[in-house]
Design a binder for these strands. Structure first.
Lengths: 236, 236
DNA sequence: TACTTGAGTGTCCGGTGGACACTGGGTGTA
DNA sequence: TACACCCAGTGTCCACCGGACACTCAAGTA
């Protein structure tokens, strides 16, 4: 059938265009780019081998010449989407502003690719760039007096918070992010959830950011407490 | 075929058992229980309509008489698995021990049902018990001087941390939880990730808990800073 | 010119969630 | 008592998913 189409094409028009331009056209990078387009436009759920293949005008099985499995495709997508990890050494002011900067950059790229939270959960392969981001943040904590495990835990805590707030933006991870639903539920059952009802009432307005800024400040304050304790008090 | 089996059954044995015990046997609760069994044993990915139906010796379509969709089934599973929210008013010592207690209970049930992190991500319906857990934690922050939004954000921060550490246990959300992989990568490319390499080296042993305790302490310390600031200093 | 290589194809498989028409026993009503 | 309706559970179908595998056929090499 495809060959028939080709025949018609050859007979009726565009004879001048190269007879086989499609050969060697497929590469891992092009596949990843197409998959990212799909994910950006329609979400991670829409990323299937056939969808991606269709966008490249190719059969899904052709993709398997270049990626071993869908998991590998997703891994390549992530590695491509996260971009080069930042160098924070030029950011002045010590560990705290550096981590803030790191979070800003992280959230920026995650906002550009809202499917990243969903794609980066679960057991999976990790690419060098992704590890590079972690490296970058751990390095920012180098001279804080925290031991290695603590530095890693701190970065994990921070990136987890980014993931939570970021995925909640698009997918409503937490009950109260499904705004309308919760609001009506709270209205109908306010006697059952008095504390929530009261909290919803006494919220000091302001645009919701899923608790991003609040959580960031709490985490950094908590880290500050530990770091100062280590520095001045008992150096363990 | 099923009727044949029934016939054989009737002819050869167990004639005494009621002729049609299966009628009215299916209920939402039984379906949810079966689905939870599947999820506990084989993970969320194994929860399909047919799997659940098979466990109940029933056709998958029979389930649709009782739940409208798979999403609804999952919602019922969650609501059933989280259990009754706790009453923390009897826990002495103020908001901090109460939140610690809340986290302990939360982690306990999440450990009993390791699929809960995976099931509670994404847009979905929320049941009264799940909201009840939130209510419970928000109530624990009632007399802290935080406004409603802050109380909600604090609970979100905490439950997000539980989710992250808990799901990492089973699914390796973060790069460095894939222990062996990262360790070999770090060994092979230590020149590329010096900070990570050094951190991995200088970790003060101890059993990893995915940064649960570390993160919890940081978050609670950070909350303490804010609450004390509100109480003593400028009440905003 | 003959042979090998390898990118892309077509077809198949088992699994998924779900639509829809059907069966057949239980029960309320005439 | 007879009948009709109700409705829990069934069987079959569909589109879609990821993936195995054998195939075609153009291009490069010997």
């Amino acid at each position: 059938m495809a060959s028939e189409d080709r025949g018609v094409d050859l007979l009726w028009g565009s004879r001048d265009k190269p007879a086989r331009p499609a050969r060697l056209a497929l590469t891992v990078d092009r596949i990843a780019a197409a998959a990212i387009e799909v994910a950006d436009a329609e979400g991670m759920a829409a990323v299937s081998m056939q969808q991606v293949a269709a966008r490249l005008d190719v059969t899904k099985m052709a993709l398997y010449r270049h990626v071993a499995s869908k998991a590998e495709l997703v891994a390549v997508m992530i590695e491509s989407a996260v971009g080069e990890p930042p160098d924070l050494r030029s950011t002045p002011g010590g560990w705290r502003p550096r981590l803030v900067r790191w979070c800003d950059l992280m959230r920026e790229t995650w906002q550009r690719h809202p499917w990243l939270p969903a794609a980066t959960t679960g057991e999976r392969m990790t690419g060098p760039r992704e590890v590079g981001w972690t490296e970058s943040a751990v390095a920012a904590l180098a001279d804080t007096g925290l031991d290695g495990g603590e530095r890693m835990d701190a970065v994990f805590l921070l990136s987890g918070h980014i993931r939570n707030t970021q995925s909640a933006v698009t997918a409503g991870t937490q009950p109260w992010t499904a705004e309308k639903q919760l609001r009506t539920v709270l209205h109908d059952h306010h006697h059952r959830f008095p504390a929530l009802h009261e909290a919803a009432q006494s919220t000091n307005g302001g645009p919701r950011d899923n608790g991003w800024q609040f959580g960031l400040d709490r985490i950094l304050d908590g880290l500050t407490v530990l770091i100062e304790e280590r520095r001045s008090g008992s150096p363990r």
